[in-house]
């Protein structure tokens, strides 16, 4: 089922002649139960796109519609029941507990004083449970870790009971385990509840593994959409990220740092030790090449019994070290 449709959307700031257009004619679609990651370098307009879809800033042209209704023409009240957001804003609410925050997620449905009925309370409870912080239900937000706080805000978005949840960089400021946890949680929400989740992120490796679709936003190519695998096959990452001395490795889905080499050295060896040695040398501007028969001087990774790195010249061992640090120092000296 198609949930969100973006049609020739132009995003940017200002009005009329003085409008500053960030992107023009963006097209994208999102289906029920999908986790979509919006990727792009800083300054390419990720946040602007997110804010426009959320209705925080007007679109310059085109439309974004959800289930056939134009999102950009809804009142706050109706929009609140269609899309829930989690923002990067660092919110400090004095005294608020997890339960109270998540309870505010029911606001679009409550009356003048915002009092929760039994059904609301049940939804609040399950939302907190789904996010795995039930044990922190009565805890103050100020006493939570960054990851737990983010989960509390995701629970708030769940309690809002919308078809789509939009998150602006939910994994920023978090440490690695917390990032993975948040991504897993969002993955789970999309798969199990049938909600569509749209998130912007810089965590390319996690996005490649967990997202159903990626939206790649770049200055040159506007918005590219597709499954991570299709985009890899089409080599789209390479073209988007290739400037600034970084290379994208399609096989691993990781960025590789490009080095300037000023020295080459033949190395004999293989396996994990060799890979690590190569990386340490590359960092120091030394390129490791495979030892050929005619080389008179080479370095060898020996693993008979104990790990050691040996320097050979004309078949004789002229130096031996047992750690990469020492062999690197020796190499630079030679």
């Amino acid at each position: 089922m198609e949930i969100l449709q973006i049609n020739k959307l132009s995003i940017g700031y200002g009005k009329g002649k003085r409008a500053k257009i960030v992107h023009e004619k963006l097209d994208a679609k999102m289906y029920a139960g999908e986790l979509v990651c919006l990727l792009g370098e800083n300054g390419t307009g990720k946040s602007t796109l997110i804010r426009t879809i959320c209705g925080f800033q007007p679109a310059l042209d085109g439309e974004a519609s959800m289930l056939g209704k134009n999102l950009l023409q809804q009142s706050e009240k109706d929009l609140a029941k269609m899309a829930a957001v989690v923002l990067t804003d660092r919110v400090i609410v004095p005294n608020a507990t997890v339960e109270e925050l998540v309870g505010l997620g029911r606001s679009p449905y409550t009356g003048t004083f915002g009092i929760l009925n039994d059904e609301d309370k049940q939804i609040v409870h399950t939302s907190i449970e789904k996010c795995g912080i039930l044990h922190k239900k009565k805890e103050r937000l100020a006493n939570l870790s960054d990851g737990e706080k983010q989960k509390a805000f995701i629970a708030k978005a769940l309690a809002q009971d919308t078809k789509i949840i939009i998150l602006d960089e939910p994994t920023a400021f978090l440490d690695m385990p917390a990032r993975v946890e948040i991504m897993q949680l969002l993955r789970q929400i999309a798969s199990q509840s049938g909600k569509s989740v749209l998130m912007s992120t810089h965590d390319l490796d996690l996005a490649l593994q967990m997202a159903d679709k990626l939206w790649l936003l770049s200055a040159q190519k506007a918005l590219l959409t597709g499954t991570p695998e299709d985009l890899l096959l089409k080599n789209e990452f390479q073209s988007i990220f290739q400037n600034r001395g970084i290379e994208f490795d399609n096989k691993t889905g990781l960025f590789r740092v490009g080095y300037d080499y000023n020295m080459e050295i033949p190395v004999k060896g293989h396996g994990f030790e060799y890979v690590l040695l190569r990386r340490a040398f590359a960092r120091n501007g030394i390129k490791t090449i495979r030892k050929k028969d005619e080389d008179s001087q080479w370095l060898e990774v020996c693993r008979n019994g104990k790990l050691s790195f040996k320097y050979f010249q004309n078949g004789e061992c002229i130096g031996q070290e047992e750690s990469i640090e020492d062999v690197l120092a020796l190499t630079l000296k030679l």
Binding site: C54, G55, F56, S75, E76, K77, L79, A80, K81, A83, A84, V85, L87, D89, V91, V93, P94, A96, L101, L104, G105, S107, P108, T110, T112, F113, G114, Q160
Partner: peptide, 23 residues
């Protein structure tokens, strides 16, 4: 006290408040 619901929402910041249906 009739303003308590808008105030509770505004405490989250203007954007969260707007997303929760507040004008």
């Amino acid at each position: 006290t009739f303003l308590s619901k808008p105030l509770n929402l505004l405490a989250l910041g203007d954007r969260y408040a707007a997303n929760l249906g507040l004008n």
